[in-house]
Each structure stands twice: as structure tokens, then as C-alpha cells.
Design a protein around this nucleic acid. Structure first.
Length: 848
RNA sequence: GCGGGCGUGGUGGAAUGGUAGACACACCAGACUUAAAAUCUGUUGGGCGAAUGCCCGUGGGGGUUCGAGUCCCCCCGCCCGCACCA
């Protein structure tokens, strides 16, 4: 009996697949197509166990669908632009381009041994000029279609480094390198007009039947459609009214102040000559631009001294405050505060001594709000207090609608549908990204680059000398020649735009590019029509909102600009979000009490001590893997030690794919042992023409269950079933012929997960051709049915007994049998049951 | 702060509202072996009991139901996202 040696077997089969061009995606009109895509990786330089999990899941689907007769497209590429490349160049010299491409080479080298069924001929990186040149063409088409425009927007500004910072580069409100408090600064930037499609993007969520409900809910909330009202509040001293937006106008009775954003035009105007207000606005400016930071910050305000008239109650005046919690981007940048029915407003009111007055009570509980705002669900009944439209008891939703109607009738305000979704700012003041293909001309203004000049490629160096990336700021801004170009319209000397595109743009259409990766246009019609949509998209839940929403927007924009068919407006038919791979963190403390992290291989996990010194380590279980915490497990080590099939089998085992999984070395070992068992099961099998009905039943059930598991992304359940099936085969007393048949089915059912081992077994047992190209086994339906089933009997909901009955026995007969059961007779003690519930094929419950 | 999710034995987890703990890890016991590794077999949620069994048990509290890990409400803990990280 030969020992299974993954090290020699795996490369052998990978070569065989290559030679057979088994994974080459071919446009074959005679076959149904299937496009499976995993979110492409950022080329950090090393593959992560999370990548292995992600790509293995996709590979299971791809191989399974291929066996089911589909023409499969399963491509791979690299999301290659972004900050880490520039950071690396800044920290240790070198060039972002060299760093990125060498990382890609390294990662491809680590991925190939996994034996993924990828069509590598379609590979591209988003930093290839052939890719981003087409992206520039798309941008120009979108510009022409009115989907791109320019406006001012805030960025994080590092006043010491004199550079724009990404949110990630702002730590506790300070620049990551300079440690200087960041400021907000206004810049003119490019925007995609995603809000013009807000309603459409929202409506279409309904049709995404094969997306996780949580993702659809998150997208719905993110787009945030709300019906509200714009109400002008007129200053007591005359002058321009302040327009407030509210989604809860029914609480108008409780309004006690107006709050406007520090960036509101009124705030800015008032700040002129008001030192206190200027200081306050400056202070608000010294906060990073994230919404989370704003929301978490202490709510502060300053009274402007202005008062406005209450639109309903004559004689009531409301003070106007500038509040640091009011967002200029949402609504009108001004709100009315109703402390009784909004906790934030209440905290603000208590802090500054503003009025608190209920607009409604809960029915039967006429209590004034003290320190906890009364915020019932909009569907709950409340009792309005002398409501101007005559409402008394009503739901808040009815109250809102009635109030809007009343305001419109009396010309006091205008109902407005608003979206939370903001336009997508795509300008980045950085080098390593796709250049925005426009030119700024003193005479012609902003002029789109001519398409024949594309790609507008990034300059590799400054002519004769290398770019110094250690200087803060965008090297394109200080390049000696790259900026200087003739105006595409008038030919006069002009300046090229030096901002590059957000890397989210790169990943918003790559799925379409894979259908024709070498085309001279962004897509090729026939290929796009054949391959789109992506039938199954797989990636991390962290992309639930931005990446997926941007991709949905881009697919629509590409339809508008003629690059994708209308049918591809929703590019991902089915979405699966997989969980993260986690690992315990091992840490000790230095003399200052700061944590020092240790690599898993340096730790004796059983005793929680350092191998080198025996020092005790603290174990923080189940943390997201990150390099800084040193809790990363390198899949390359696992593959070297046990082979790709073991790594693949393990990442699919145990944890449900959508949940986070904790990596443990013992788990990998167990997977390896099992694969060895399966090989031994096959290795010394005889042959014969004997049959065995019990084993045939096991085969049919295994085919059915494993197939169901794959179809529903229950890979862990498929794996568990395969354990059971393998156990059943080894325990079976069947003859060699029946066993040989069963093991071949086992190999086939395992082949999407452990393709190399399966090929080896297939060949060993005389299977025809490659298992990768063999048709998926079908279960014999007649063998799936059980004739006799066991029904548990519950008495008052607790299991007390069970009975064996024919599967098709009528309900009345089952009832009779149940009542004749010893445990039931004993429990009834001569009486009769209150209720007898028979759920056919499931359970019997006797209620006494 | 806001939006979304998750929480089940020593561990990873299974369970269309219907027998909680499948399958696996680990542990323990046994077989094989001079011995070990490997392999194979068996036991294993907690408690009570000689035993057929009985009681408790899915983060905590409440509710709906004949029946709740699953549905609803409140609380706690952890994770993801919050628009310039990818």
C-alpha cells in the first residue's frame, strides 16, 4: 500500500489540469454559463489564511458547477492601487510600482499551489495601464453622461506635513506621522453622481433574492430614503428664513431651539466679527471628517443670539444655536431640536438650559419627559397634545403624514423625500492611483482628455531622477514635466489634473472587465452579454455597503454609457459574505506595561508559555488576524507541511462559511489525518461485480446531502456528511465491487474540496479521464426514501418516548399508535388528552 | 453615537418553530506494539439514581406557542460598517 504524498501528487495534477486546459473559460453557446467570482485581493505580498478560505469556497462552487455541465468563468486579479504601496515607498524607499508587482508575483506563487480552478489567462492588475486606461475611458463617458461633476468638499488636512490625510491616517484626531491635530480643509473635487440613482438603487434591492438579508438591510439603511419636510423658520428681526429639514415634524410642539451646522452659511456669516463664534467654528473644524468621530464627540453648541418664530404657535420664539453635531451634508444643515423626543436634543437642552416640552404621551401615561427622551416606534400609538392638525391618538407615522399635509396646505413648509446617500467623492491627492483624465486650461476651463491619448499613464520617475516618496504630498503635483500638457481643446499650455481616483473605482467594474480582459474598449459586447452577470459573488461582510453599492452604481453607469447590457444593471445575481479567519493573540507586557505580541509558532499553546523562555503569555482568544498583533498564520507553512488539499479541507470544515473561524493547528492536523484515511480506503481495494443495497443507500443519501450542502454554502455540513460517508464505507461489510463504487463516489463528492486527492483516487480506481471533467454523480431517488420512520413522542412538550411507523401512515393511525404507547398510557392515567398534535414525519405531542 | 450581525459541551460547531449537542477536535479507556508514533475500537453537557429513568441546560431577564437555540421585547458581551483602509 502506497502512502499518499501530497508533495508529489499535487503538482502532478495541477500540470494535468493545465495540459487539459480544464479551467479555460470558453464562450460556448451550447452550454449554460456560470460566472463565479471571489473579491479580488489587495497584493499585500503574502496570502493570508482568509484568502485561502475565500478562494477555496469559490473554487468549490466553480468545480462543482463545471461538473454539473456549466461553462465556468472563474478569474483572478489584483486590486493593486492604494496607500500601502506608497507607504512602503515612503518608509523604505523603492517604488510603489515595483513593490506592487513583486508582491503580485509573490502572491500568485503562493496561490498557485492551492490548485484553484482559475483561468489565469484572464489575470490583470488594476495598476496595469491597459486596465486603468479603460477606466479613464469609462470616466470620460460618465462625464459626458452627466454622472461626474466637481464641487467643494472637506478633507482631513495635516497642518504640519501640509498634506491631505485619509481617515485611516488620522489617529485620535491627529496626523499619523506629524501627530499634529488635523483640520478640515475645503478642496474642489470630483464626484460621481450616485445620488441621482438613489431611488433606483434602493428599489432594486428588493429584486436581489440571493443576497443576504442583512446586506440588503444595510444597503437600504445606508441609502436612507426618508419622507420629511423642509420648514422655513423666520427670524424675529426679519431677514432670510432658516430652512430646517425634519423627518419628525409631528414633534413640532416640542421644538425648543434651532441648531445649525458650523459650516452653515448663516454660521459663517455670523462668525464675521464674532470672536466667540469664530473660535467655536474653528474648534469644530479641528476634528476629523468621519461621521463616527462627530457622533461620538461631546455635543457642544453656542447661542447665536438670533431667535426665530415658531411656525405654528404665535408668540413663541426659538433660539438659534450652532451645534457641532449638525451635518452640513445631510438635509439643509439645520434642524429644529425637540428634546422631549430625541435623546441627543434632550442632552443638549439639559446642558444649555433649553426648554423641554412633550409633543405627545404614551396612551394612559401622561408624564413629562425628564432625562430620557420618549421615542416610540413610528408604528406605535401615541396621544398628541393639542396637535395643530387636530390629531389626538394616532401612530407617529400618521402624525408625520398629517403634519406634512397640514404644513403644505397652510404654506408653512414643503414635503421632501431625502436620501442619506451622499455623492461619491473620487478625488485622491495621491500618486498610486488611476489618474483622472482631464486637463485644466486657463481659457477653456476643465477639459476632458481625448480618448486617443489614453491611457494617461503614471510617470515612473522624474525624468532622470527617481521620485522621492518620502516627501509628504502628491509627487504628481511636483513632477517637473508630467503636469504640463497642451489643452486638448485649444492646444495652449495647460495643466493636467494631478488627483487620482479612489481605489474603489478600480474595484467597481473589474467583474465586467474579466469577461474580456484584453479588449481595446472597457468591455466587449458579445463577451459581456454571454458572461454577465456574476452568478455567485463571494467576499467579506466588511464590503457589505461601500464596494457593493459602488459596483451596483457602476453597472448602471456602464449601461448608460453603453458598456454593459441593461440586464447587467445588478451585476451580482447571488452574494455570499464569508466570515473572517481569527486566531488567538499571545502577548506579554514590557516593563512599562505595554503589550508585546508573539507569533503563534513561538508559543507553546498547551501551556500558554513562550517556547524560548517559558514565560507565561496572556491569551486573547479569537481576534481578527493582523500583522501588528502577530496573530497571523501563514497558509504557505500549512501547504508546505500537509499539502493544499489539507488546507482546503480544513478551511471548509467545522465553521459555517458566513461565520468567523478560529484557526487552530490541531484542526489542520485532523484534516490531514482524515485525507490519509480516505486514501487508505481507496488504496488497497479489490474489485468485483458484487452489489450491496445498504451501501447503495448510503451513496444516494451522501450524494443528496453533500450536493445540498454545496448548493446552499453549507460546506461545513458537506464536510461532516463526507466524514459520515467515509465512516459508513469503512464499516460496511459489503464486497469489494460495491465498496469500489462507493469510494469513487466519495472521491467525486470530495473533488471540489480536495481536488488533488480525488484525482489520485479516481485514477487509482480506474476512473475515466480527469475527475475534474467527470459529470457530477446523481442520487438514485428511489433509494432516498425511508419506509419506516421513528417519531418522537412528547408529553406536554417533553420527549418521553418514540414509535416506529411506516412513513406513509395516515395521521389518524399515527394518533392511535401514539395513544397506545406505554409512556402515554402511564401519563394519561386513564384520562384523555387535552390535545393531540401530530406533525407528519416529524413529531407527536400529547398535551395533558 | 448610529446601522447591521453574532452568542449552543473542555473546543470548532449541528439542529425547515418539532428528539439540543450531528460531525470533528481534545481528553480518557482499550486493542496492536518490547516501547513509542501511526492506526483501530469505545466513553465523554451538568446533576441525582442500583436501575427502567428523573431534573437542569443554548449569554441574562421577560413574552408568544401544544412545543423556542430558532419568533418578539429589554439587558449584557463581542464583531463588522460609518462614506479618504482595502
Amino acid at each position: 500500500m502506497s502512502r499518499y504524498n501530497a508533495r508529489t501528487v499535487e503538482p502532478k495534477w495541477q500540470q494535468a489540469w493545465d495540459k487539459a486546459e480544464a479551467f479555460l473559460a470558453k464562450r460556448d453557446p451550447s452550454k449554460p454559463k456560470y460566472y463565479v467570482l471571489e473579491m479580488f485581493p489587495y497584493p499585500s505580498g503574502r496570502i493570508h489564511i482568509g484568502h485561502v478560505r475565500n478562494y477555496t469556497m469559490g473554487d468549490v462552487i466553480a468545480r462543482y458547477k463545471s461538473s454539473c455541465g456549466f461553462s465556468v468563468l472563474h478569474p483572478m486579479g489584483w486590486d493593486a492601487f492604494g496607500m500601502p504601496a506608497e507607504n512602503a515607498a515612503m518608509a523604505s524607499g523603492g517604488h510603489p510600482k515595483d513593490w506592487t508587482y513583486s508582491n503580485i508575483d509573490a502572491m500568485r506563487g503562493q496561490m498557485k499551489p492551492l490548485g484553484l480552478s482559475i483561468d489565469w489567462t484572464r489575470e490583470f492588475a488594476t495598476c496595469d495601464p491597459e486596465y486603468y486606461g479603460q477606466q479613464q475611458a469609462l470616466f470620460l463617458d460618465m462625464l459626458e453622461a452627466g454622472l461626474v461633476y466637481r464641487k467643494n468638499a472637506m478633507v482631513n488636512w495635516d497642518p504640519v506635513d501640509m498634506t491631505v490625510l485619509a481617515n485611516e491616517q488620522v489617529i485620535d484626531g491627529k496626523g499619523w506621522r506629524s501627530d499634529a491635530p488635523v483640520e478640515r480643509r475645503e478642496l474642489t473635487q470630483w464626484f460621481f453622481n450616485i445620488s441621482s440613482m438613489a431611488d433606483e438603487l434602493l428599489e432594486a434591492i428588493d429584486g436581489l433574492d440571493n443576497w443576504p438579508a442583512k446586506v440588503k438591510l444595510m444597503q437600504t439603511n445606508w441609502i436612507g430614503k426618508s419622507r420629511g419636510i423642509e420648514i422655513p423658520f423666520h427670524p424675529t428681526d426679519g431677514g432670510e428664513p432658516i430652512l430646517c429639514y425634519s423627518t419628525r415634524p409631528d414633534t413640532m410642539r416640542g421644538a425648543s431651539f434651532i441648531a445649525i451646522s458650523p459650516e452653515h452659511p448663516v454660521s459663517r456669516a455670523l462668525a464675521q466679527g464674532n470672536a466667540e463664534l469664530t473660535d467655536f467654528i474653528d474648534e469644530c473644524r479641528k476634528m476629523d471628517t468621519t461621521e463616527a468621530a462627530m457622533e461620538k464627540a461631546e455635543k457642544k453648541g453656542i447661542d447665536t443670539g438670533i431667535t426665530v418664530k415658531h411656525p405654528i404657535y404665535e408668540g413663541i420664539e426659538l433660539p438659534v444655536w450652532v451645534g457641532n453635531f449638525v451635518l452640513m451634508d445631510y438635509g439643509t444643515g439645520a434642524v429644529f431640536g425637540c428634546p422631549a423626543h430625541d435623546q441627543r436634543d434632550l442632552d443638549f437642552a439639559r446642558k444649555y438650559g433649553l426648554g423641554v416640552q412633550n409633543a405627545f404621551y404614551m396612551p394612559g401615561e401622561e408624564v413629562e419627559v425628564e432625562n430620557e427622551a420618549l421615542v416610540p416606534a413610528k408604528t406605535e400609538m401615541v396621544v398628541y397634545i393639542d396637535h395643530f392638525a387636530g390629531l389626538s391618538e394616532a401612530t407617529s407615522q400618521d402624525g408625520i403624514d398629517a403634519t406634512i399635509d397640514y404644513f403644505e396646505e397652510h404654506d408653512l413648509g414643503k414635503g421632501q423625500v431625502k436620501f442619506r446617500l451622499r455623492d461619491w467623492g473620487l478625488s485622491r491627492q495621491r500618486y498610486w492611483g488611476c489618474p483622472i483624465p482631464v486637463v485644466h486650461c486657463d481659457d477653456c476651463g476643465v477639459v476632458p482628455e481625448k480618448k486617443e491619448n489614453l491611457p494617461i499613464a503614471l510617470p515612473y520617475d522624474n525624468g532622470n531622477e527617481a521620485i522621492d516618496f518620502s516627501v509628504p504630498g502628491n509627487p504628481l503635483d511636483r513632477h517637473p514635466t508630467w503636469r504640463d500638457v497642451p489643452c486638448p481643446a485649444c492646444g495652449k499650455p495647460a495643466k493636467r489634473e494631478t488627483d487620482t481616483m479612489d481605489t474603489f473605482v478600480d474595484s467597481s467594474w473589474y467583474y465586467a472587465r474579466f469577461t474580456a480582459p484584453r479588449a481595446e474598449t472597457p468591455t466587449e459586447k458579445a463577451d459581456a452579454e454571454y458572461w454577465m452577470n456574476v452568478d455567485q459573488y463571494i467576499g467579506g461582510i466588511e464590503h457589505a455597503i461601500l464596494h457593493l453599492l459602488y459596483s451596483r452604481f457602476f453597472a448602471r453607469a456602464m449601461n448608460v454609457t453603453g458598456h454593459l447590457p441593461k440586464s447587467a444593471s445588478e451585476p451580482f445575481d447571488a452574494l455570499f459574505t464569508q466570515g473572517m479567519v481569527t486566531h488567538a493573540i499571545y502577548q506579554t507586557r514590557d516593563t512599562n506595561g505595554r503589550p508585546v505580541y508573539h507569533l503563534p509558532e513561538d508559543v507553546d499553546e498547551a501551556n500558554a508559555t513562550l517556547r524560548a523562555t517559558g514565560e507565561k503569555v496572556e491569551v486573547i482568544p479569537s481576534a481578527k488576524m493582523s500583522k501588528s498583533k502577530k496573530n497571523v498564520v501563514d497558509p504557505v507553512d500549512i501547504i508546505d507541511q500537509y499539502g493544499a488539499d489539507t488546507a482546503r479541507w480544513f478551511v471548509l470544515s467545522d465553521s459555517p462559511p458566513e461565520r468567523d473561524v478560529e484557526w487552530t493547528a490541531s484542526g489542520a492536523e485532523a484534516a490531514w489525518k482524515f485525507l490519509g484515511r480516505v486514501w487508505r480506503l481507496a488504496a488497497d481495494l479489490g474489485d468485483g461485480d458484487d452489489t450491496d443495497e445498504a451501501l447503495e443507500r448510503e451513496c444516494a443519501k451522501a450524494i443528496h446531502d453533500v450536493t445540498m450542502g454545496i448548493e446552499t454554502f453549507g460546506f461545513n455540513k458537506s464536510v461532516a456528511r463526507l466524514y459520515e460517508f467515509a465512516n459508513a464505507i469503512s464499516k460496511s461489510k459489503a464486497g469489494p465491487g460495491a465498496k469500489r463504487k462507493a469510494v469513487k463516489i466519495l472521491a467525486q463528492l470530495m473533488s471540489p474540496m480536495t481536488p488533488h486527492l480525488s484525482e489520485e483516487i479516481w485514477q487509482h480506481l480506474g476512473g475515466e479521464g480527469l475527475i475534474a471533467q467527470a459529470p457530477w454523480p446523481e442520487a438514485d431517488e428511489s433509494l432516498l426514501k425511508e419506509d419506516i420512520i421513528t417519531l418522537p413522542i412528547q408529553i406536554n412538550g417533553k420527549r418521553r418516548s418514540e414509535v416506529q411507523v411506516p412513513a406513509d401512515l395516515p395521521k389518524e393511525e399515527v394518533e392511535k399508535i401514539a395513544l397506545a404507547d406505554q409512556a402515554v398510557i402511564k401519563a394519561l392515567d386513564g384520562g384523555s388528552p387535552k390535545k393531540l398534535i401530530v406533525v407528519p414525519g416529524r413529531i407527536i405531542n400529547v398535551v395533558i
